[in-house]
Design a protein around this nucleic acid. Structure first.
Length: 304
RNA sequence: GGGGGGAUACCAGAGCGGUCAAAUGGGGCAGACUGUAAAUCUGUUGGCGAAGCCUUCGGAGGUUCGAAUCCUCCUCCCCCCA
């Protein structure tokens, strides 16, 4: 049943992902799963670029998922996303519709199309623990390395952690993912020249400020969302809340924010570049192409 | 009109005769990323290169073995007194 691949539209902020994903969904009877770590929050609309009206096209509403699913103030994370994604994905596929993943949170995207971020509830394995007592630290470390490459030292700091790490590795090795299978996917990367992207970001920022983005942040604060949470949400929420708290003037706020968004966009591109280097197949779509040309590329890729 | 201060690499800003291709910060560029990822962190930043060489500190001259640093003139900016 999972022959339908997940079509992924990815790229940096302000490159037109939603616009394209909606058109694609309209074309192939698809539904959109957002991969945006901030659009999950309700009431955070302008600052996260939610653009909900973009989801209706020629009078038709394209269904979307994983947007507006938690309240502001909550700290959502990758692992919850991984879980929520599976539910949405299986729901869509179960209804014979085509899932389209669309977003710019690289880690969220990678977490659902690779098995690199697996984190199940792993039960204690007494038998294994007893057996492990017979081996030295070095032997156990060697064994752990045979299961996975160590990305840091936290797993081998002491015997207890090491045994637990091995226990988890063993469990993963012997048990399938809680969801049935690895998601098949097709990645489409919206490529855009940095300077053009910067211009887009700048004009979009001006527009958002005119559209009441500052009011939005003020409302969040008034409704009880803490300053710390807004700082944590980053970018527009971070800088605007600092401006509202008189920590910087308007001019400084806008210039720093503009810079920060630009730097963020660069990091997003770095993430996707790395995914490509690490073997993820990616089809580039030049943002300067027309909508129909872009759709053409996607359709011909998935039909071949 | 008189007096004073200043012009340094993309920006801000140190340096005030040699150890200066020039501190530091910002930006830019590149990268990392396993329970905060719109976060956090790292490298790099005149040109060509292996050593090394070449062109830089507003402009033109000068002093000196040697100048971003001292002197003269010029251009522009800021402040104060008229």
């Amino acid at each position: 049943m999972c022959n339908i691949p997940l079509l992924c539209i990815v790229g940096p902020t302000a490159c037109g992902k939603t616009h394209l994903a909606v058109r694609l969904a309209n074309e192939i009877n698809g539904e959109i799963i957002s991969a945006d770590s901030r659009q999950v929050y309700r009431k955070m609309n302008i600052g996260t670029g939610k653009d909900l009206d973009e989801y209706s096209i020629t009078g038709k509403q394209i269904p979307y998922h994983l947007i507006d699913i938690v309240d502001p103030g909550y700290h959502y994370n990758v692992y919850e996303y991984q879980h929520d994604f599976q539910l949405a994905y299986q729901d869509i596929v179960g209804r014979n519709k085509i899932p389209i993943l669309c977003g710019g949170s690289g880690m969220y995207i990678e977490s659902v199309i690779s098995n690199k971020y697996r984190l199940d509830e792993v039960p204690v394995n007494d038998e294994f623990r007893k057996d492990a007592e017979k081996y030295s630290m070095d032997e156990l470390i060697a064994k752990l390395k045979s299961y996975k490459s160590l990305h840091n030292n936290t797993d081998i700091l002491d015997r207890e952690r090491l045994v637990r790490a091995l226990e988890i590795a063993l469990y993963y090795d012997q048990n399938p993912l809680w969801y049935n299978e690895q998601v098949k996917y097709n990645l489409f990367y919206l490529s855009i020249e940095r300077s053009v992207l910067r211009e887009r970001i700048a004009s979009r920022l001006t527009q958002r400020l005119e559209n009441g983005m500052i009011e939005e942040v003020k409302l969040l604060l008034d409704s009880g969302v803490s300053m710390d949470d807004l700082l944590y949400y980053g970018l527009e929420y971070r800088f605007i809340s600092q401006y509202l708290a008189d920590m910087m003037d308007y001019e400084k706020m806008t210039s720093k924010l503009l810079m920060a968004i630009g730097q963020f966009a660069k990091r997003q591109q770095t993430w996707f570049n790395r995914m490509r280097r690490n073997g993820f197949q990616m089809t580039d779509i030049d943002t300067s192409l027309s909508d129909s040309q872009k759709l053409q590329i996607i359709l011909s890729t998935i039909n071949s």
